[in-house]
Design a protein around this nucleic acid. Structure first.
Lengths: 184, 184
DNA sequence: TCGCTCATGTAAATAGTTACATGATTCC
DNA sequence: GGAATCATGTAACTATTTACATGAGCGA
């Protein structure tokens, strides 16, 4: 019934629906209006993805509001039990050090969705893994910068960019850990 | 003959081939071994993409080394005139402020490939546009952070991450401009 | 000869973009 | 009544991932 595993996009949609029941249009607006909206899903990506989640039994359409409803055809999705379970499994997916750079945006989304779901302990453990991954990545880049020949200037500057950005992420992770630890 | 426009991946491959003639395997190793290798193209993506570039007349296979060659079947691609021209057009593509975050990696690659191709003036102009885009983006995020309600802590922290990372990129752009301006 | 790296490819399944289609509601 | 927004979708095309296939050269 669960079929194959979900794509990242499907996982994010499922997560947003777990945060609060939403229609396709609602989700579109989330991507359009929040700073998450680096990615702007097209209708042709969004609606079929919701149908796939529905076909897999992870979300269902809320019964239409027959109580004097205006009859507007909105399909508001809510998670099923299986959907919430799949979402929790996704939230608990270990942070892969090797792909921490590629998946950073996804990890940030998971972090947001963890609030009020996991105890502080577990969130701190997640952030700790993220921090370790970012520290390893930063160290790798710096090691590469030390040994690489670099006859030219632009490649060196591009590498500097990578180091600077990942160091900023790393410092953020340290900061976030400190903030959460200090919370009552 | 040029058909439709190239994908980013195709543009990057073309750019690497313009930097130095390469076989598919060479390009694979570039992605695998340099810190650019956040993205690891599969054979099923790489070889068809090279064939598409060839079919569009942008690259051609170097004549095999018949001079006592070991007969190893390597297809080493080099750019055609049309290929070099298309690459230059891509390098000169304006920086879109609206998508500067999404395309940052691509812009960095363009920056690397500009060396020894454009005069310093033009590179500085490119970096200036990039800096403007990053400054606008950072300002947008900070403005959003100021007005957003934020009942919860994780979304605020995630936004902090975005601000920190983009500010690091912005500072890098300023630094790169200073370095290039100071060069002989 | 066995296994590894080099080297290029194909086929099936999947999913995304672009562009178009459709119809209801709301505001003027 | 007409335009903009709300709201969902489809069809064609394109590209990617995954997994498999193939074969040459080389070192133990």
């Amino acid at each position: 019934m669960a079929g194959h595993q979900l794509t990242s996009f499907e996982q994010v949609l499922l997560g947003l629906i777990c945060l609060s029941p939403s229609s396709g249009y609602d989700l579109k607006r989330v991507f359009a209006t929040t700073p998450m909206g680096v990615y702007q899903p097209s209708s042709g990506a969004l609606y079929p993805a919701l149908r796939r989640l529905e076909a897999k039994g992870l979300v269902r359409v809320q019964p239409p509001d027959q109580d004097g409803g205006s009859g507007r055809q909105r399909r508001v999705y809510e998670p099923t039990g299986a959907g919430r379970a799949a979402h929790l499994v996704w939230l608990r997916t270990p942070v892969e050090p090797a792909t921490v750079s590629r998946d950073l945006g996804l990890h940030l989304m998971r972090f947001v969705m963890m609030e009020h779901v996991f105890p502080r302990e577990e969130v701190l453990s997640f952030l700790g893994d993220l921090e370790k991954g970012l520290a390893a990545l930063t160290a790798d880049l710096e090691r590469y910068a030390a040994i690489a020949p670099f006859d030219d200037r632009h490649p060196r500057l591009a590498l500097d960019h990578g180091v600077a950005v990942h160091r900023a992420s790393l410092q953020w992770a340290e900061h976030a850990i400190a903030v959460l630890r200090a919370s009552q």
